[in-house]
Design a protein around this nucleic acid. Sequence first.
DNA 1: CGCCCGTCCTGTCCGC
DNA 2: TGCGGACAGGACGGGC
Length: 260
Amino acid sequence: MPELPDVEGFRRVAAAHGTRQRVAGVSVPGPDMLRNTSPQGLGRALKRRRLAEPRRHGKWLILPSEDGHALLLHFGMTGTLVPADPDDERHPHDRLVLGLDNGELRYRNMRKFGGVWLSDDDADAIRAVTGDLGPDALGLDAARLRERLGDARGAVKAALMNQERIAGIGNLLADEVCWRAGIAPGRRVGSLGDEEWAALADALQETLAAAVPAGRVPGDEGWLTGVRGEDEARCPRCGATLRRARIAGRSTLWCPRDQS
DNA sequence: CGCCCGTCCTGTCCGC
DNA sequence: TGCGGACAGGACGGGC
């Protein structure tokens, strides 16, 4: 689930329920999700502190505290951040629960990919956890997109998903963007012409603009995502039978008629 | 450098 | 009904 739009949704949840709230308690039903600290260490760092404005970089959610710590959350494939009332029954996959003055924020993650890191809230310390990330994909203009991806040797899809090039694009979005741009996901980056670069940049921003308010990649009508689960999926635009293959190591769906 | 693979985990679905 | 295997929206490290 969690690609840029999803994590942006989690950021909004954290902003609405957490900003300026004091951390009253930290409960860690899934301590193995804490990658560089312990439940005790987390409690010491956060308890009685107020949370500051949350930020997002690519698929990372940054929850700073006002005293200069930051909780870094990565959601892997199955993570979410849910607001809850302390009386709400815990979900079996709740791994970290921040008890705030006005409710709880619960980090939930079925498969235990991703995790929770504690960091100082400064760029170097955060980068030490996240690794080098490219500029966030949201709002990236055409020139900058080409600058970031242009020297890649592999497939367009692989470049879009490489978090060091641009941050935030995962498997579903990569397919969606290629589909909207009319570019086959396996095309070599070096073979793209000027018009294709423009189409790719437009498709990227259009797709994000629609997905970000939804807080997810919508599986609606008119979206490639909407037919992804179907056996003999057809192109929502032209009706051709879609092709499936593994590209860049991931399951990939595209339209052989609309994309070349 | 890019690509493929296995690995980290858990749950679901499909075929036998 | 039970079971094995494949697969799932992420990312890393190793090997080629």
